[in-house]
C-alpha cells in the first residue's frame, strides 16, 4: 500500500505536457482561410475552396489536396463529413416514429430507418406496427452501434443501414472518441490486432475496442440481433490488453498521429518493451518519451 502511495499521485508542471505537432504532413501545403491556392487552369473545385474573382482561395485552415483535376482543402480538425460507404460507430440519441436518430460526430444526427436494419431471425418482411413498438428493444437510447452510410440527402442528412451481419449493437468493450481526420478511409474497418484485441475504427472518429469470442467474428453467419449475451467476465489479461490499446489510441490522438492498426501496435509494443504499466501510460513525461522514440519510424 505504501508503494502505491508513491506512484498513485503524479503532479507535474504544465510545461511537461504533451506538445501537439501535426504530423500528417508529407509533401502537402498548408493554407489558411483566404489564402490563394496555386492552381493550373481548368481545375474542378472541391470542398473548402471558393472562387473570388479570378483567384481560387481556401475557406478553411488545412491542407491542399490534389487528385488529378480536383483541388480541395482538407481541414485539420473539423466535424466528420460523411461519404457514402463509410463505416461508422454511432450512438443512438433518440427514437422517433420508425427511425432512430444517431449521433455520429457530424453536423447533424444521422438517421437509421427501421426498414434499414436486419430483423432477428434474418427474416425479410414488411415492418409491422408491432416492430415499431418494439424499436426500443432493438436499439435503445445511448446504445452504440456500427453501421454503414447508405445515402446522403441533399440537405446533408446521413442515412445509415445495418443490413449486414457485421453491423449492429456493440457490446463488451470500450468506446473512445478521436479526431475524425486521424482515421483514414480504408477498405477494412474491423481489425483484429496482434495482441488479440478487436477494434472498429469508425470513419467518424468514434472507435470501439472490444474482445470477441471465437464465436463472433466478421464472417459469422449469425443475425446481428443476438439475444442479450451474458457479459462474461473475461480474464484480467484480456482486459488489460484492451485498456492498453485504449491508452495507445489516446496517445495517438493527443499527438495528432494517424490511427491505424500499425500505428496502434507500434505504441502498444513500445510500452510493453519499456515495461510501462497500464496506469502510467498517460503521464505527460512518459508519453513524451514514447512519442520521441516512435515518431521517426516509417509507419508514422
Amino acid at each position: 500500500m505504501d508503494k502505491d502511495d508513491d506512484t498513485s499521485i503524479f503532479v507535474s508542471p504544465f510545461e511537461q505536457e504533451a506538445v501537439v505537432t501535426p504530423s500528417i504532413v508529407k509533401s502537402s501545403q498548408f493554407v489558411a482561410p483566404g489564402d490563394d491556392i496555386l492552381s493550373q487552369e481548368s481545375v474542378v473545385r472541391g470542398h473548402g475552396t471558393m472562387v473570388q474573382g479570378t483567384r481560387l482561395t481556401s475557406t478553411v485552415a488545412g491542407i491542399v489536396e490534389r487528385v488529378n483535376k480536383l483541388v480541395a482543402v482538407l481541414p485539420i480538425r473539423a466535424r466528420y463529413s460523411a461519404e457514402v460507404g463509410d463505416v461508422i460507430v454511432g450512438r443512438i440519441r433518440d427514437i422517433v416514429s420508425r427511425r432512430w436518430k444517431v449521433d455520429v460526430n457530424s453536423r447533424q444526427d444521422a438517421v437509421l430507418l427501421l426498414s434499414a436494419v436486419n430483423l432477428p431471425g434474418g427474416v425479410q418482411r414488411r415492418r409491422t406496427y408491432e416492430d415499431e413498438l418494439k424499436m426500443r428493444e432493438f436499439f435503445d437510447q445511448d446504445d452504440l452501434i456500427s453501421a454503414e452510410v447508405q445515402e446522403l440527402k441533399q440537405d446533408g442528412l446521413i442515412m445509415l443501414h445495418t443490413r449486414s451481419l457485421k453491423y449492429g449493437k456493440l457490446e463488451n468493450g470500450i468506446f473512445i472518441s478521436v479526431t475524425p481526420q486521424l482515421v483514414k478511409r480504408s477498405k477494412k474497418h474491423f481489425h483484429r490486432l496482434s495482441c488479440g484485441v478487436h477494434i472498429i475504427l469508425g470513419d467518424n472518429g468514434y472507435v470501439w475496442i472490444y474482445v470477441d469470442d471465437a464465436a463472433y467474428g466478421e464472417d459469422e453467419e449469425e443475425a446481428n440481433f443476438s439475444k442479450r449475451r451474458e457479459n462474461d467476465k473475461s480474464n484480467l489479461e484480456q482486459r488489460l490488453s484492451l485498456i492498453r490499446v485504449r491508452n495507445s489510441i489516446c496517445i495517438l490522438d493527443l499527438y495528432f498521429l494517424s490511427i491505424q492498426p500499425e500505428t496502434i501496435m507500434l505504441i502498444y509494443e513500445e510500452t510493453i518493451r519499456r515495461n510501462i504499466p497500464v496506469q502510467h501510460m498517460l503521464r505527460p513525461d512518459i508519453i513524451n518519451d514514447i512519442y520521441r522514440t516512435v515518431k521517426n519510424t516509417k509507419e508514422m
Binding site: I174, M281, L282
Partner: peptide, 30 residues
C-alpha cells in the same frame, strides 16, 4: 450505453479502471 456500463462495472470488479488506473489512483495532474 448499458453495454458500456456493464463492461465498466465488470472491469472495476477486477480492481482496474478503464484507463488502467487502480481504484484509488489519481489521474496525472498538471
Amino acid at each position: 450505453s448499458k453495454a458500456e456500463k456493464a463492461y465498466l462495472l465488470d472491469t472495476i470488479e477486477t480492481g482496474t479502471r478503464l484507463d488502467g488506473r487502480q481504484l484509488f489512483e489519481y489521474r496525472p495532474i498538471s
